[in-house]
């Protein structure tokens, strides 16, 4: 190891007062963020009685896992869950493909027609046609009430494409030039050289898409009426919302039979927890690309 590098390494591992203050402040911040979330989790593991009485703060009262068990065994939950998993995996794959293939050419300043294409992208990023045209399009393509509706709607985000394009633009030109000299085509360069260097942004955008698909509620509202094809977020959102106000604007009880059979608060909390856990599991796998380690950059001189 060179002397400079050794010195750098030892310097980097030394801790100063700043480090400690930094960690303390950040920890406090983390606690502030975490506590309210803990309340939802605590409710999911508490008995219904304590939850209704508002006794549950950050720790379960009357700890039981029955509620969670009840939620995951419900048919409608399982079907919605399955639907969302399929839509998320397929959708994210398609999205990453479209995003990376379009970001790369657009990251080249010399591309002919670049400005025009970018204008088009910005335009579609800002202008949305609304319920009617989108529904009619999907209907005429025969996609309504199929899983494809959930995959195609949200399959391309201009915003995410810009993020990737930005990242590509910031990569040093020397690497691409080296590849060009070696006779690689554009596609080859993208796959073998650029992508491996772009793992942070690929991880970020994959995460963004995955979460976007997982959380997509509107697609279900617009395109799916089949009772067993509703995505998880729609199931969850409706479940949480129906419990909010039992009376309507005139003061009358909305549909009394539904009101009588409302899901309990702890069931709702449990459903929230169970619906969120899967996507949380994705994060740690991608996280290693965000955390700057002691790795040395791949570009030499």
């Amino acid at each position: 190891m060179s002397k400079t590098r050794k010195k750098a390494q030892s310097y980097l591992t030394r801790r100063t007062a700043f480090d400690y203050i930094d960690m303390v402040v950040l920890s406090l911040f983390g606690v502030m963020i975490l506590l309210p979330v803990l309340q939802v989790v605590a409710k999911a593991f508490s008995g219904e009685g304590p939850v209704i009485a508002g006794l549950v703060t950050f720790w379960p009262i009357g700890f039981q896992t029955d509620t969670i068990g009840y939620v995951v065994k419900k048919g409608e939950f399982l079907k919605a869950f399955q639907t969302s998993v399929i839509a998320t995996v397929a959708g994210t794959t398609l999205s990453m493909f479209l995003t990376v293939t379009s970001a790369y050419p657009l990251s080249k300043p010399t591309l002919v027609g670049r400005k025009f294409i970018l204008y088009v992208f910005v335009f579609i990023m800002l202008f949305h046609a609304g319920m009617v045209p989108n529904y009619l399009l999907f209907r005429s393509l025969g996609l309504t009430n199929t899983i494809w509706a959930l995959i195609f709607s949200g399959a391309f985000s201009v915003f995410n494409m810009f993020i990737v394009k930005n990242y590509f633009e910031a990569l040093p030109e020397s690497v691409e030039e080296a590849a060009r000299i070696d006779g690689a085509s554009n596609i080859r360069t993208l796959v073998s050289v650029i992508l491996p260097m772009s793992m942070p942004v690929v991880a970020t955008v994959t995460l963004y898409y995955a979460v976007g698909f997982w959380n997509n509620y509107m697609a279900g509202v617009l395109y799916i009426t089949k009772a067993d094809l509703k995505p998880l977020q729609q199931y969850l959102y409706d479940l949480v919302r129906q419990a909010l106000d039992t009376t309507d604007a005139a003061g009358n009880i909305k549909d009394i039979d539904s009101t009588m059979n409302l899901t309990g608060e702890s069931v709702r909390a449990a459903t929230i927890v169970v619906s969120t856990v899967p996507i949380l599991i994705v994060y740690p796998f991608l996280q290693k690309y965000f955390v700057k380690g002691m790795t040395i950059g791949s570009v030499k001189g």
Partner: peptide, 26 residues
């Protein structure tokens, strides 16, 4: 159910179980 209020609206007869279990907890 936590003993703050004396009266509660809008209570439906279907709330009986929920109210009972909540009171039990307190």
């Amino acid at each position: 159910t936590n003993g703050t209020a004396l009266f509660y609206a809008t209570a439906g007869f279907w709330d009986a179980d929920a109210l009972n279990s909540a009171f039990e907890a307190t």
